[in-house]
Write a protein that binds this DNA or RNA. Structure first.
Lengths: 338, 338
DNA sequence: CTGAAAGCGCTTACAG
DNA sequence: CTGAAAGCGCTTACAG
């Protein structure tokens, strides 16, 4: 069966294709009678506009793209992305937009994938769910003039880039202070990727808190890996075998903290009695894990929602603030409850 | 800056647009010299094909759509979908396809959303990550002739519908038997949505196991809710307040089992000492929770991968089996280790 | 209030 | 091996 087109409908309704097109977009210049007549026929013929043809003609796709950190990789399993996605999709659904997940194809670099989406005209805008130092993707995005928003913080020309983030420095500061108030002096920090800006900001907050409390910064207590459970698991061994074992560990992310907990248990240490653990993101993992982990609620869903709202403002050329800060909150649980 | 088109490249290279088009698709009829010349110019001019125009001309989108159970809803936070998605995207990336997430827009029914994607020509095929009884979406999909695959099992005309699933009946059977072997006789089952086919199959397996062991089926021990943690949390109370409290509970899903565990703890009961818990999906939740939960590994990532491979076979009109079964495996953990 | 016509940027028989 | 032309199914100034 051939697809019914705007032409078929026009013929059947005895109007011009342009009239049908205007009925579809509910153009105010078309009389109500004509609209009704055409709509009836569209329904009868089971007509549905071809959105590809539409996009080509009016240069709008009604689709936004999402860039994940490392597509098809394990990083993606972090519940943070799901929470964020939930916020994003609540907004796209309101604007009647769809979401395209950008995954680099085989043999493609990340910038290739971006190029495909942007120059290939597949999206009206993009949300970047990651931030690394000197990200070539950001350079490309700026050059491309394609609307985009970063969830997180970027360093290059950062005053021009629309971003939504938490105050990660302050959050880490607060968390470190909390652990001090609980009587810990030897506090370690397990960071994420060395390239990660979020990781860097949190490390800065951690250091600042030590400094403000006149606690010495000990190089051995600060280690970075990647954002995966396995890496945290391995790194924790380094901490636990130090001559002066830390009394508390702050971990970049809930998923990583699972690895930390696993290793601590292998060392037959009790949490929080022997060692306290605190983490970030407050995903489902931190509240269900054993023991439940104190974690900073960064409001992932709100991050996604605000980022997406901002993106639509840019697409529609409305006013917007370049940078938006989403509040955070420490959720205390068993792992720091001594 | 105007976008550079195939026309511009053609002019610059002194060839016809059709030749440029053939260079893009690496047509064997074009001489290597010409190809080289054109490619050089494409690069110089920073040309990139407009995939929208391409799609309109050749009726291919190089995009598949994914239908989630209840978009923008809490169901989505189940790690199962992420695991599945990982499998899917590993395949799309190989075929150089992108993924469109179908979310129904405001005031849209699910079939509306499908219609938008299919009749709007936005995807070459679809993967359905859910299965409910009498699903109108399935009817629509069959009528539409659009290639699609279901992760799970469908009941309508099921011999014609391509699906990838586990043997859920047998899995539930095995799990029930395991709990019996551990000495439990009063075994309860918390199902998902009453409309859910997976849920039904597992309930059938549970009942069959009881029967084969000559254990009575007790209506009070079988309850269904939805697939959320909260609902499982509430339902568990009904079980725990029964005059003859169950000795073990099988839960449809890891996420739900978190709710069960929470309630059991509130009743000051110890797992597994007072009550055993076993669940399905073996997501990250079951292994990190407190206590770690025995769970059936349904190989979510494999489900996604196989479904997507099957979809491409259909798209490319290759041979395929309608139904494919992915193996499962019981992963025993603390929650059943008495 | 409606229509005829050009155009969006590609692909693909057809012809040579 | 390459080109001219028609077509994919819409939208949108322009004209009336």
């Amino acid at each position: 069966m051939r697809k019914v087109t705007i032409r078929d409908v026009a013929k059947e309704a005895n109007v011009a294709p342009s009239t049908v097109s205007r009925v579809i977009s509910d153009d105010s210049r078309i009389s109500d009678e004509t609209k009704e007549k055409v709509r009836k026929i569209m329904k009868e013929m089971n007509y549905y506009p071809n959105s590809i043809a539409r996009s080509l003609a009016n240069n709008k796709t009604e689709t936004i793209g999402i860039i994940m950190p490392s597509y098809t990789e394990d990083l993606f399993i972090n519940p943070f992305f799901q929470d964020c996605f939930k916020g994003i999709s609540s907004v796209t659904s309101k604007y009647s937009y769809d979401i395209l997940i950008a995954a680099n194809h085989r043999n493609e670099t990340e910038v290739d994938a971006l190029r495909r989406l942007i120059q290939g005209n597949r999206v009206d805008g993009l949300i970047l769910m990651r931030n690394i130092k000197n990200d070539p993707a950001i350079e490309y995005l700026i050059d491309s003039k394609c609307p985009f928003v970063i969830i997180g913080t970027s360093h290059n020309k950062s005053d021009l880039i629309p971003m939504v983030d938490n105050n990660n420095l302050q959050a880490a500061y607060d968390l470190t202070r909390l652990l001090m108030e609980k009587g810990n002096r030897r506090i370690a920090f397990i960071g994420g990727d060395a390239d990660s800006i979020v990781s860097q900001m949190r490390i800065d907050g951690y250091k600042k808190a030590l400094q403000d409390s006149n606690l010495p910064f000990n190089d051995d207590y600060l280690i970075t890996g990647d954002f995966l459970e396995q890496s945290a698991y391995e790194l924790t061994e380094e901490l636990l075998t130090l001559p002066n074992r830390p009394e508390a560990i702050i971990v970049m992310d809930d998923l990583m903290s699972l690895g930390v907990v696993k290793k601590v248990k292998e060392f037959k240490l009790k949490i929080p009695r022997d060692i306290m653990i605190a983490s970030f993101n407050n995903s489902i993992l931190s509240r269900s894990s054993n023991p439940a982990i104190t974690s900073i609620d960064i409001n992932s869903t709100t991050l996604g929602k605000k980022a997406c709202n901002k993106l639509f403002k840019i697409i529609n050329k409305d006013e917007y603030d370049t940078k938006e800060i989403v509040p955070y909150k420490i959720i205390e649980r068993e792992s720091t409850n001594r």
